[in-house]
Design a protein around this nucleic acid. Structure first.
Lengths: 407, 407
DNA sequence: TAAACTTAATAAAATATTTTAATATGTTAC
DNA sequence: GTAACATATTAAAATATTTTATTAAGTTTA
């Protein structure tokens, strides 16, 4: 891993952050990682231990000499509230510094579209959840929220949903809950999760496709989430892709989303079955969207030909879009993630087919396409990561004081 | 501008680099820029003055207090050899640290395609040029070369042309000339020029379109050239854009390059005139490609309707491709650069038209489309910048010794 | 199994860097 | 036009950081 130079005054929080991501590291490793001398790292580590943020966790195997002591973050030193929203429902939980939920994940119905009270509802749920779990606010580092829409993480504004009268959602939620809050686009949050804790761990150039009711893209560039100038980079599913395609909710024609999202697959399935196509899906045709979505992947796994045909068609179209992405970004890895990652295995072949057709061979040659293992937890983990990404020395000091007061 | 933390041991070379880009800066500015204290900056500056790299260049206007002394790079402290190649011809020059040529720019015919001796010819030209100009090699910092093709700047390999039997071109040319050499894709080099010395100066998110015989893209992401994992990012002109388009040299159909490059415009002009279209271009229809290209922009400026129609058509198609790019990258600025930048003014309207049609309004709203002012010099300047980008403390020390020996 | 070689942790010494204070040089308001 | 304020430069003192040396712990080789 490449070394990252940090200001001396930010060293301790950066070490803590690193330990959160990397589980267990020795002083020598931290020393090279931050390009600073061992004594200074040891001093920082010892202070972090004394302050209750870090633990010794035994010796690493020897590499030919004395075995190094390794250190990890103390899981219950602080907690993080992680929230994953989609158009229809919102999941809320609180995790420890090992990303393990310390209270049950709660799922609530919360429609985002044309819902003026959605934001206040969200805040209600947040406050109620904290109250119910009995976790002291002082021990919660912050609230990370992944949400659909045009989100500027920098400004904390979602231009599509959750209007706070032009105010920053971060500020609004902070005022209403007393906890630092950070919002970001759901796909970018999932990309964070995949790069820090998923199949793309530590990779520098990764494109994460968020297969869901829509199709999102989270980009990792030079090892960091790339958001573009206004924060809207990765609007991948509304590029003009098909000459005379279906009409998209965005108002244009030929968008990827209107041709290959899970929503479209479900619609096509319903349509086909009505017109007499045989499929084991028949029994759930009148179920709500969410159940139908789950069912698609179940019957696909059992080999249902019609569903496989639909997923293959969607896969091929996604592959064509990926070809464009590859030409522009030349990533090392593409990750199929999000709710629809379950269908990744089936889509892999048609995606590869499309890449062969639409990519310059040299660009497609070394591309690695991976299927997420985080699955549905991706957005939750990413939301927690989002809070940690915003962690700094200032916040470390605040939390140090809190811990001291509590003991 | 955001601060850039550098290791203490790299401070002097980083200051020199900064002064090369910024012309004149005060110690206070450098101090905040590098996040280091004034005394240490002054020490470095004074050493650089003593070593002959930096000059005092007078006082900056006061901002309410004592006027700061400003410093600039000593233009003739070192020279840089800058080489701009295209498929047909190659320009060679040597510039000082103000990017001013210190010897006449030489243009030589050098076909890259299927030319096994192109590399050795290039080296011949380089050595001959240095010899002829009489500039001591010791004073030349290095050779920067922009070239078409699939170029991995990191590896120093051009996978399309100039084969060095799999060896790094950087090494090969170094061995043959005794000077450190750096190759990069022509479009990325032009992007460098635009961001350091052109209309996109100091901007962080810029897409530079290299309008030439082909259509290239150089990307500036987070303030740096973005090259992707293998170094091939920005292969923008071969994405599948048109359903049943013209056949492209890359073997595929519907590429932007096959529809809107200057080569295509020239071809279409010839074709049209043969078929009876009226145009002042008629007189040059049998001229070589290069002259015809120049003529296109000349007659366009005089209002030739046929040529304007051709350029508009190309512009619209480029606009459609830009729409895709904007969706993915969300840049602040797009620069039309390269040989064809002269036609930028005429293409601006059709490009904007296409953006209106193919972009989500929020993304297109704040886009700034600029026309390069560097023009044909862009690639030369970028090649010089390429050398400076690779400048570091080690090279500073080497050159310090050289200067000392010479005095 | 002991000697030679590695790597890690700790302490002391040597350097480097920043902070503070003092001085120099301008600008602005009255 | 001078007093009050603002910024720049220089020097000295206070901190911080790294380097080097030393001790400790483990592996490999003969």
């Amino acid at each position: 891993m490449k070394i990252k130079l940090v200001k001396a005054s930010e060293l301790k929080s950066e070490i803590l952050k690193k330990l959160y991501y990397e589980n267990a590291l020795s002083c020598a490793e931290l020393s090279t990682l931050f390009g600073r001398s061992l004594p200074i790292i040891m001093k920082a580590i010892n202070e972090l231990i004394e302050e209750g943020f870090v633990l010794e966790v035994g010796y690493a195997p020897s590499s030919g000499g004395r075995r190094p002591l390794t250190y990890a973050v103390k899981p219950d030193a602080m907690y993080i509230m992680a929230i994953a929203m989609d158009q229809l429902s919102t999941r809320i939980t609180i995790v420890d510094l090992n990303n393990k939920p310390v209270a049950e994940v709660e799922m609530v119905e919360l429609l985002l579209n044309n819902n003026a009270i959605a934001l206040d509802k969200l805040i209600e749920y947040i406050n109620a959840y904290i109250l119910r779990t009995g976790i002291e606010k002082e021990r919660i580092l912050g609230i990370g929220i992944g949400m659909p829409g045009f989100v500027s993480a920098e400004q904390g504004i979602n231009y599509s949903y959750l209007d706070a009268q032009g105010q920053s959602l971060n500020d609004y939620i902070f005022k209403a809950t007393g906890l630092p809050a950070y919002v970001a686009n759901d796909s970018s949050v999932i990309a964070l999760a995949e790069q820090k804790f998923g199949v793309a761990k530590t990779q520098e150039e990764v494109m994460v496709i968020n297969l869901g009711w829509g199709i999102g893209l989270g980009m990792i560039v030079k090892g960091e989430v790339f958001r573009g100038y206004d924060g809207f980079a990765g609007e991948f599913s509304h590029i003009p892709l098909f000459e005379d395609g279906a009409l998209c909710i965005c108002g244009k024609q030929g968008c990827l989303e209107a041709e290959a999202s899970m929503l479209v697959v479900v619609e096509k399935a319903k349509e086909g079955i009505k017109q007499g196509r045989l499929s084991t899906l028949q029994s759930v045709i009148n179920d709500p969207l969410k159940l139908m979505g789950d069912a698609i992947f179940e019957v696909a796994a059992t080999g249902d030909p019609f569903v496989i045909e639909l997923l293959s068609d969607a896969g091929y179209k996604i592959g064509k879009a990926l070809a464009i992405l590859i030409h522009i970004m030349n990533p090392k890895t593409i990750v199929l993630s999000g709710r629809g990652a379950k269908g990744g295995k089936i889509m892999m072949a048609p995606i590869q087919l499309a890449l062969n057709k639409y990519c310059i061979p040299r660009l497609a040659a070394n591309i690695e396409i991976l299927i997420s293992e985080l699955g549905f937890d991706g957005e939750i983990i990413g939301a927690a990561v989002l809070v940690m990404e915003n962690f700094n020395q200032e916040k470390l000091i605040i939390n140090t004081k809190r811990i001291q007061m509590n003991t």
